[in-house]
């Protein structure tokens, strides 16, 4: 069983939702990424999404754009990100790592080479924002050959008929984008979001994570009541951005612990 499936299976027995923080690899600098990953795992993260920096992050809001720019100033590319995951794996063999990013760095490396190197590094899942199921065959087949999960987004604009299309290729979990817009946007309608989750879970036969626009413990708690995972991206990245370098680990750990506590509260 994959690390991702094991995590969800274990949490289900505890009636808990998974907490999935997102960071951009190389933000604020490459040396801090592996320590951040360990700190997130130690503070209650069940799965970690690691953003692969890209020059043109079309689906991201200003916060994650800036994180990408900070990482790119250090020249962090896909190969470096894989090396960071491999380093993390030398002392953590349980916390699943999902790479999140855009198609072009993977295209550039080549699907087969990427899948081989990602598997060797210990990557568990890949979410490529701009590769919808219609265009995924090449990369999905390459990843499947190495038992790496291909994670897809579903959005409020996804027609019900399309959920089946996504279901055919999705594995690990599916990520429900809780609002129309870029990452870090506001205005989350929880009742609306909650209404979509059961049908997605049933059609896909996979756990459903909810992300985009989750900024505090109260919202995370509410979402944990109906979703299988809570994904927090921009708010985490903001914590990194707003902390002096030597405080990043402490502040991030405190924030993630507070979210974990809120999610697990009865």
């Amino acid at each position: 069983m994959s690390r991702i499936s094991s995590v969800f299976k274990h949490l289900k027995t505890q009636h808990k939702a998974a907490l999935i923080p997102f960071i951009t690899a190389g933000d604020p600098d490459p040396q801090l990424t592996v320590p951040i990953l360990h700190a997130l795992a130690a503070s209650g993260a069940d799965i970690i999404e690691v953003g692969v920096p890209f020059s043109d992050p079309m689906a991201d809001g200003p916060t994650i754009q800036r994180a990408s720019e900070r990482a790119l100033r250090h020249g962090v590319g896909l190969k470096d990100v894989l090396a960071m995951v491999a380093e993390f794996r030398t002392t953590n063999n349980t916390t699943p790592i999902v790479l999140m990013g855009y198609a072009n760095p993977i295209e550039r490396m080549g699907y087969a080479a990427f899948a081989t190197q990602a598997a060797a590094a210990g990557v568990d899942g890949v979410l490529t924002v701009d590769i919808p199921p219609e265009e995924c065959t090449g990369v999905a087949d390459a990843l499947a050959a190495h038992d790496i999960d291909m994670i897809f987004l579903l959005s409020p604009t996804t027609p019900e008929s399309r959920i089946n299309v996504v279901a055919q290729r999705a594995s690990g979990f599916v990520y429900y984008v809780s609002l129309k817009g870029v990452t870090g946007s506001a205005n989350l309608d929880l009742v609306e979001v909650a209404s979509h989750i059961p049908v997605i879970r049933e059609r896909c036969g996979l756990p459903v994570g909810v992300g985009f626009g989750i900024r505090d413990g109260a919202t995370a708690h509410s979402i944990a009541q109906f979703a299988d995972a809570v994904v927090i991206g921009s708010r985490i990245v903001q914590e990194i951005e707003n902390s002096p370098r030597e405080q990043v680990i402490n502040n991030l750990s405190a924030f993630v612990r507070s979210i974990r506590a809120a999610m697990d509260a009865q």
Binding site: M58, D130, P132, L153, L154, T158, P159, V177
Partner: peptide, 8 residues
């Protein structure tokens, strides 16, 4: 090659 939100 776009995010899911734009597919529809």
């Amino acid at each position: 090659f776009v995010a899911e939100t734009l597919i529809a």
